[in-house]
Design a protein around this nucleic acid. Structure first.
Length: 277
DNA sequence: AAACATTCCTGCACGC
DNA sequence: TGCGTGCAGGAATGTT
């Protein structure tokens, strides 16, 4: 899924395969994403070189020559694939190839998004941090400023379930539904616990396992739950490492107790009633 | 056919 | 009262 590990995997692949290339042209086939893709986008990016590929939270940042940055968000179901002759789009439906960029070596960068919850826009590099999508984001979970002291301070006085707080992009940027369940299982904290009641020790474990889970997921190029594909068209291999997500009724891999599910903020959440307090 | 990986917006409740 | 914040719910949409 397009949570942080998926976007980071995409960033790493594109940093190798697309950085240094020049965009020859861009075509918008269907620009009706969460917000419509600007009709100016093709003209803005045409002729510019891809200098670097960055990431902030779940946003991919394609840095272009001329001081422009193209921001790409994959929403629920988006993918960006780098295709050359012989590329097999696999499970991707060509009907949802909405935007296409042709690079100077003849390869193509194709944005595919069946549900069209994604986002694609170009901003000046100097305005990046103050742009609408990025300005309110909390610290990166893999940076040092996401630490137990910070999380302690943030959670005091908050009555919402700890899982919802962990998924709040203003608290920490990039943890989505699947990884939140996995992190809390490893930290042995129930997703339903009011954030203010989570102890210092538990918050330390949550930070520790956030880093561990995200690192491991990045190493396996993300999780494929249904249809996610990386930029080479391959599914992510973290799915086989999931310990609670989508395992309702199945035995806990630690203690054998049946995994339970509960809906929090309209998102399905999974936990072991014995291992998680 | 009910569920769903994403974010954004609204409106209510509460506290100062 | 008025303001800010926290929180829940709903919406956007197409696929399986």
């Amino acid at each position: 899924m397009p949570e942080l590990p998926e976007v980071e995997s995409l960033r790493r692949i594109l940093a190798k395969s697309a950085a240094g290339r020049r965009m020859v042209s861009a075509t918008i086939r269907d620009g009706r994403l969460r917000r419509a893709v600007s009709n100016d986008l093709p003209a803005t990016v045409a002729g510019r070189a891809i200098q670097r590929v960055g990431r902030r939270a779940k946003y991919l940042l394609i840095e272009l020559s001329g001081g422009q940055v193209m921001i790409v968000h994959l929403g629920m179901s988006g993918s960006l694939t780098h295709r050359r002759d012989g590329f097999d789009p696999g499970a991707l439906d060509p009907r949802h190839d909405h935007v296409e960029f042709v690079l100077d070596d003849g390869s193509r960068l194709v944005y595919n998004d069946p549900r069209r919850f994604g986002l694609m826009k170009v901003v000046a590099r100097g305005n990046l941090d103050s742009t609408e999508e990025l300005k309110g984001l909390g610290p990166e979970p893999l940076d040092n400023d996401f630490n137990p002291g910070y999380l302690w301070q943030i959670t005091r006085g908050r009555t919402a379930a700890i899982k919802n707080v962990l998924m709040d992009q203003e608290v920490v940027a990039g943890v989505g539904n699947i990884y939140a369940s996995e992190i809390l299982f490893r930290a042995q904290v129930r997703p339903t616990r009011p954030a203010r009641k989570v102890t210092r020790d538990e918050l330390s474990r949550i930070v520790e396992h956030t880093v561990q889970v995200l690192r491991e997921a990045i190493g396996r190029r993300g999780t494929t739950f249904r249809s996610y594909r990386d930029s080479r068209g391959q599914p992510g291999r973290f799915a086989e490492r999931l310990r609670v997500y989508d395992r309702t009724g199945k035995p806990c891999l630690v203690c054998g107790t049946a995994i339970r599910s509960v809906v929090l903020a309209q998102r399905s959440s999974f936990f072991c009633p014995r291992c998680q307090k």
